[in-house]
């Protein structure tokens, strides 16, 4: 077992564990912060899988923006009466479905890719990613910009219509 594998396993355990904590934590803020840990660990996994650029984008976008946004939303919508439980009644069904989905996917993966190895021949540097992004993937990239614009306008409209009332 190489050092990379060891680090990856540690990061994987951290990611899965913090994800579980995030989804089961009774306190909303803790959930968001555990998610930060998960995302960071996943970013670490990305680095180990030769995807440095993606990793830092993950940190920058997820940790820097998404999580801050989520925490902001949590703070804005903090409910004064915390009488209701944080999980719904069908939590056991949900848990069963989650386990089934995880095991099913895992089993599929095991069945399909047992024995395969990642060799890390091509590092995902800014240059190579940029090359791919702006040559072969430029059309999806442009479409994505349209999607982002639509989402931006949509978010503004939803927020405005709420505040006008």
């Amino acid at each position: 077992m190489s050092l990379t594998e060891l680090v990856f396993l540690v990061l994987a355990v951290v990611a899965a564990g913090s994800a579980l904590l995030s989804m089961t934590s009774g306190q909303l803020v803790h959930s968001a912060l555990w998610l930060v840990v998960t995302l960071g660990a996943v970013a670490g996994c990305f680095v180990l899988m030769t995807a440095e650029f993606v990793a830092w984008v993950q940190v920058l976008v997820y940790v820097g923006s998404v999580v801050v946004l989520v925490i902001f939303a949590l703070m804005l919508t903090r409910q004064t009466s915390a009488t209701t439980a944080e999980v719904t009644g069908n939590r056991w069904i949900a848990a069963a479905l989650g386990v089934v989905a995880a095991i099913g996917l895992g089993a599929t993966m095991v069945a399909g890719f047992r024995g395969e190895d990642i060799e890390g021949r091509r590092i995902g540097t800014a240059g190579s990613i940029g090359q791919a992004l702006f040559t072969d993937w430029v059309l999806p990239f442009e479409i994505l910009s349209g999607v982002l614009l639509a989402a931006l306008i949509g978010a503004i409209v939803i927020s405005r219509s709420g505040s006008d009332r």
Partner: peptide
């Protein structure tokens, strides 16, 4: 939930 169960 129903959706997910259906997929499963």
């Amino acid at each position: 939930t129903v959706l997910a169960a259906g997929v499963v």
